[in-house]
Amino acid sequence: GPIILDTYRVIADFEKTSKHEINLQTGDLVEIVEKNQNGWWFCQYESKRGWIPASYLEPLDGPEEAEEDEPNYEGERFVTARAYTAEQEDEISLELGETITVIHKLLDGWWVVRKGEETGHFPSMFLHKAGTREI
């Protein structure tokens, strides 16, 4: 049978910053082809296809099950694959190769991580699971 794609509504204007993204306006309805954990979702809008940030979308209908995991306060160990310097107050700065604990995997790709006493959002695309090598 046909593949039914989830429809999402764009909640804020989005202007592309690289060639495989697409420009969208508030209220546009898009179909999602792929939901990447890093927070970029591949979508289809009219004849256009490209990546847009999950945080600019909301489900048109309530999804059947929660899409987002609950926080896991015990956490999972990850290692930073790149350094990142916090740009907003709720983010955390980390160097390359630091082992941290992920306590909440958010759909927008900005996971909540803990290092010692410090907690903040960090881009999931700069993390890989501890004990594995980045492919």
Binding site: I11, H20, N38, Y56, E68
Partner: peptide, 22 residues
């Protein structure tokens, strides 16, 4: 390749339109 997502982290949620968490 278009199948590969952008290499930069996605922008944080737009401040006044934070996604309604389900």
């Amino acid at each position: 390749d278009i199948k590969n997502p952008p290499q930069n982290p996605p922008p944080r949620p737009p401040p006044e339109t934070r996604r309604k968490r389900v």
